[in-house]
Write a protein that binds this DNA or RNA. Sequence first.
DNA 1: CGGCTGACGACCT
DNA 2: GAGGTCGCCAGCC
Length: 121
Amino acid sequence: MPYDRDKHGPDRVVGPGFHAEVFALVRTIPRGRVATYGDIATALGHPGVARQVGFALAACPDDIPWHRVVNARGELSARADGRPSATQLRLLRAESIVVDARGRITQFDRLRYAALRSRAH
DNA sequence: CGGCTGACGACCT
DNA sequence: GAGGTCGCCAGCC
């Protein structure tokens, strides 16, 4: 899915090129591992803009492993319809990541990609 | 200009 | 654990 400003908003958050930086970082998350929106924001030097990271991922290209990004509680974030993405769930399970009935990733702490964890300060 | 809205999150009851 | 508050940024009334 190509970037569509009308549907996905500005390709500019906390400065020009924010979306591209988010995509580049998400691409580094290994198969079978996950990261949080906040981890991405903090790693880019902008702790606190986790929401904007989510916004950016809504517009990401197909070759970005966006499904490996979940919220800080290790759950698949809800979409506009109030429910998590079935596609995200399928892609995660395809990587042997276990998601329980409430949408939470089992062993989240262990699967969280260390290289992107809160390196702020 | 003012208020509302998000694939969020840290804090406080 | 379940709720509520507030900060975050840009777009759109």
